[in-house]
Structures are given as C-alpha cells and as structure tokens.
Design a protein around this nucleic acid. Structure first.
Lengths: 339, 339
DNA sequence: TTGTAAGCGTTATCAC
DNA sequence: GTGATAACGCTTACAA
C-alpha cells in the first residue's frame, strides 16, 4: 500500500492541510513544519496520487492526440513534437489511433467515457468530414484541429495551406520542364478536405504553368501508404503516353511511387520525377532522396499545444486559425545530382 | 457541467446504487428500472467519470509504454501493436519517450507521481543498465521488460534471442560468399545488453563460418539512426581493403549504411551487401529492398500485454521470460534481383 | 432487487 | 500559518 497524505501527516504530527501545502509548493509554510513534513515524506516514500488530485481539481493533465496511424512517419514525428511541446505546459499526451475508422473518430469526438480523461484534444484526422464536427458540439471538451478542414470558426485550427503547398510542388515540377504531371492521392469518395485542397492546388498550378490537364493522370489512393503509392503508380505506368512527373499527396505515397517506377525499369527523375508532401526523415535517405514540401511539424505542435492550453484555461477564447509555414525542398527525385 | 450519477438517479427517481448497477452492467436490475435509468442517462447525456471510478477501484486502466523515441519505426510499429493488444484487455496505452535520457528512464522506473497513473508498465529501453532495475524495487508497479537484458528472474521479460538473430544475419552474409563482414551498432561504452548480444552473435557467426575477425570492421553507433548508420559506414569506406558486407544492428542503421555506400559510388549488394535487424516497413520499399531479421512485434506486444495483465491481477505470479520468434528475410540488399 | 452511506486521497473552505 | 472538515464522483458493503 502506498503512503497517503494522511500517513505523512500522522508521521509528521501535523495536519493533512499542512502536508498538502508542502507538497503543492504553497508559500506560507514555516521552515520547521516544512522540514518535518519533508522528512516524513522521505521516510514513507510518499508519492502524491495523481488520480485523487485530478478528481478534486478537475484537471487530468492529459491531452489526447488523435491520429489515423502512429506508424505513419508524419504522425509519429508529429506525435514526438506534440509530446515535447505538451511537456513544456505540464501536459502529458495520450495517443489514440483511429485506424481510418469513422466510428472510432466519431466516438472520440463525441466524447465517450474514455475521452473524459483528457483536458483537451488534438485531432488530426486523415478522413474526417465536417459533419463529424457538429457531433462534438454537445461536449465541452476543448478541441484543436490539426492540418485539416476549412476553418469554420468553431474550433481552433492549426492548418497547412494545402492549396499553396500543392501548387509549390507542382510548380517546381513545371519549372524543371515536366509537362505531363500526374497526381496521386485523391480520395475515392471525394469528401475530405485535405486531398480536395491538394488536388485543387494541383490543377491550379497546371493552369498557371499553361499545362494541359489529363484526367487519367489523377489517381486516387485510399490510404496514404507506401503500398497505395505503389499500386497507384502501376496504374499510371499502364498509360500511354506516360507521365513525366508524379505529384504525390504524401511522402509515403511518393516512396511507393518511386519503387514502382524502378520496378518498371524506369528512372527517377530521368524518366519520371517524383515529389511528395510532408518531409519525413525517411525521404532524406531514400534513393534518390525525395523532393517534398516540408511542413513545419514542430511549429504545428507548438501552436496546437499553446492553443489548447489557453482554451483549457479560458474556454471562452474565440477560435483561431493558425497557418503553419511550408517550403519546397528539392532533392534528387526531381533534380538529379542535386547537391 | 457534465451530469453525475446523482443527477441521473434524481432524474430517474432511483438511487445512485441502481444507476451504478445499470452503468456497470450489473445483472440483477429489473427491466423497468433499467429502462428508466437508461432514459435518464440519454436525456442528461451522462458519461461516467473515469477518474472517480479509478479513485474508487484503484485501477486506472492505463498502461505505460516507455520507448526511447516514438519516431524510430521499430518503436512506432511496436507501439501500434501494443495499443491494439492492450485494447483487447481493456487497457489504454500512454507512450513515454525517454529520448535516450538516463535520468528520464530512472525517474519513470522509480515511479514519480506521473508513473502512478499506470496500472503497469511496458519498458522497452534502448540503453538501460541492469542497475536501473534495482531502483524499481521499492515500487510495486507491475513491470514487463521488452526485448532487452538478460533475464534475471525478477521481472517478466519478452525478449528476442539477440545472439541467434545476429548469427542468422551474419551466417546469411557468409552463405552468399561474403568474407569481410563488418558490423555497425556496438555502443561506444559497452554496457547495454542488446548491442553486446548482437556483437556476440556477430563474432560467433564469423567463427562458425571460419572467417577472420577484423577488429577495425566493428564500428560503434551511439543511436540506431539513419544518420549514425551513414556516418559509421563512411568510416568503414575509408578502410582498405573494404568490407564486402555490413551487418547493421538495426534496419535504420542499414538504411543509412546503404545510402553511404551509394554516395561513395559503390553498389549494394554488388560491392557491399547490407543487412539489418527489425524488419520495419521502410525496408521493404527501400532501394534495394533491405534484407533483415524480422522480429515478431505483434507477438512481442501480445505477450507483453498478456503478462502485464495477469501480473496486475495476480501480483505474485512468478516472473517469466518469453522469447519472441525471429526469422531471416533475404531481400535485394544481399541477394541481387531477389524475387 | 434496491436504498443508504462510507470511503478512495486529494484540494479547498473555513475557522482559529 | 495551521487544523478540522467538506467536497470531487464513483463503487460497494451493509441493510432493507
């Protein structure tokens, strides 16, 4: 049995109030008392019970981070940054995987009893529809949306300018002289905003560059996985004429795409240039190294935690949208022998 | 303000006891009562407060998973499997990153007030020394060790046969005719058991194959990262004669190693074969695809959760060691044009 | 089968 | 500055 506040109080011959004061760093405690209490704590190896504290204060000190899959490098890197940022505000992070499961997302959003553990939630859905957000309404759980959706003013939102990011990627492909630019990553059922926005950026950039849009060059991908990128690219490689560049809506798709190009006996970027979005570590060591649009995940994490922390303290703060910076990173998969 | 059990009881005109019975699925509740309670719950949008429940029952339903870095694919894949396995036992998982920080590992192990949230801990340290474990003694926190350390009988332990895994990898290199086999991944200060065991397997396999041991072919790596693999390989490439194969103690090291070989204008596996350990997704899509020793992380996760769950329920269960299976996976990085 | 009440370990409100 | 004591919301003897 772990020692309780009571045990310590008894041992030190003081009241629980005084012990609590010492433990929680209350200012006005006499030196003598503090010393006695500290000694008793030491002797009994006392550790405060965070659950009891939570029940009393109403704060768990826990943030929920909801992502589709923790094994997707973008999300594990985001998780790392969120964990680090949260620690600075005294919060710990629980990671929930939805596994692309709508019901799971809905449950979490609507606040089942598990959700009640969190002081606030950071929600980074791959595939959440706007309607889902309506369901969150009844809950009072502070919520920050990550990298998704158009801002509708109801929730804090740390976003990426997906249209601009996609445009930068495609503009880069056009600049290096590519004319038949394919795109991988639209969703089979066109409902989610990230792929929609990235697709919009794609067509817009083609327009700007004065390039023709080939509808057959737009390939869908259900998940943003290496496998999906591979399969989508195989479909592209069956076309004639072939594309001379592929814009993938994520780095993982691009990794799979490159592999498919090589397996077909073609070269990247010689025959087909490939670019992704995310800038995950894996891309830097790929062969060829992967050109991409770098998203500033430390920034996203920092802003998200800052927003959720203030919202927890002041629930009436008006919702805000923060746009995270992005920048093109040209590597070997678009520029051969790039330094 | 969220509704409480009391509110529901009042609304349904029954006692809290009855409401609690309904909520916790107690058998003996009359149909009428149950219906009334359920209606009230619905109307008030009641959700049980897990914190209060926890304070009463002494169970948080939380497992702590301690890993060095969640962004290392092996650990994110392990985390995914642990989260899934834990869900089947009704547990949720909090991930703690130690970031290779000894103090952090010690704190977690000794049980600061944060640790007390967990019903049990799954500890997968990259770099924990045996002495650290002694410090855990005073805590009563159930603990399962993952993939590390020699079994000392004090703690449950889901391990890998590191010696055998390393031997399999090196034996494979010998079988394909390599004779100057280097190894990357010993720790600068030789204290941790995983690298020691893998190194032991390396030398043992060289012996078995009748190959000479070149001391300069054993390169240390502080972290098991792509960067460390790259740097270590650059050191190898400065030697003469060059090695004709590299055994890396992790897939990430191997990814970095392959890149370094290519940057030096050499070929994998033509000039130098490369093999890793872990079998992370990234390796399958690398170019060439990475030969490796596959560790059965779903098995590890399942066993670990099973052990911790029984230990939580029956603290006096004797500690057990489970060895997870591994198997060699030969891909293109050792066998060119492998199917 | 259901109601009453005690208590989990902490913090916070009141006195003194 | 410190000591009693009442919550926080739930589960569970013990009674009825």
């Amino acid at each position: 049995m772990p020692a309780t506040l009571r045990d310590v109080a008894e041992r030190a011959a003081v009241s629980v109030r005084t012990v609590s004061n010492v433990v929680s760093g209350y200012e006005h405690v006499s030196k003598r008392m503090r010393a006695k209490v500290l000694a008793a704590i030491e002797e009994l190896d006392y550790r405060a019970n965070p659950v009891a504290r939570t029940l009393r204060t109403g704060r768990t000190g826990l943030l929920g981070l909801v992502v589709p899959e923790i094994t997707v490098p973008y999300f594990s890197e985001l998780a790392r940054d969120v964990i680090d940022a949260a620690a600075e505000y005294g919060y710990r992070v629980m990671i929930d995987q939805t596994g692309h499961d709508h019901d799971r997302e809905r449950q979490l959003l609507m606040g089942d009893d598990r959700t009640m553990l969190f002081d606030g939630m950071l929600f980074s859905p791959l595939v959440t529809k706007a309607e889902l957000l309506d369901m969150h309404g009844s809950t009072k759980m502070p919520l920050v949306l990550l990298g998704e959706h158009e801002f509708d003013g109801r929730y804090d939102h740390v976003a990426i300018d997906n249209v601009a990011a996609a445009m930068d990627a495609v503009a880069h492909l056009a600049e290096i002289g590519r004319e038949r630019i394919a795109a991988i990553g639209s969703q089979p059922q066109e409902e989610y905003s990230t792929p929609l926005q990235r697709f919009a950026g794609y067509t817009k950039a083609l327009d700007t560059a004065g390039l023709v849009t080939h509808p057959e060059f737009a390939i869908t991908a259900e998940h943003y996985s290496r496998e999906a990128g591979y399969e989508a690219t195989r479909a592209l490689l069956a076309l004639s004429p072939l594309p001379d560049a592929i814009f993938c809506f994520s780095d993982l798709l691009a990794i799979g795409a490159m592999r498919a190009v090589f397996d077909a006996g073609l070269d990247v970027p010689g025959d087909i240039a490939v670019i992704g979005i995310d800038d995950v570590d894996e891309g830097r060591f790929a062969r060829p190294s992967l050109s991409t649009v770098s998203l500033d995940t430390p920034f996203i994490a920092r802003e998200a935690v800052r927003r959720i922390a203030t919202r927890i303290d002041e629930p009436e703060t008006p919702a805000e949208e923060v746009i995270a910076p992005h920048r093109l990173v040209a590597r070997e998969s678009t520029v051969a022998n790039h330094p």
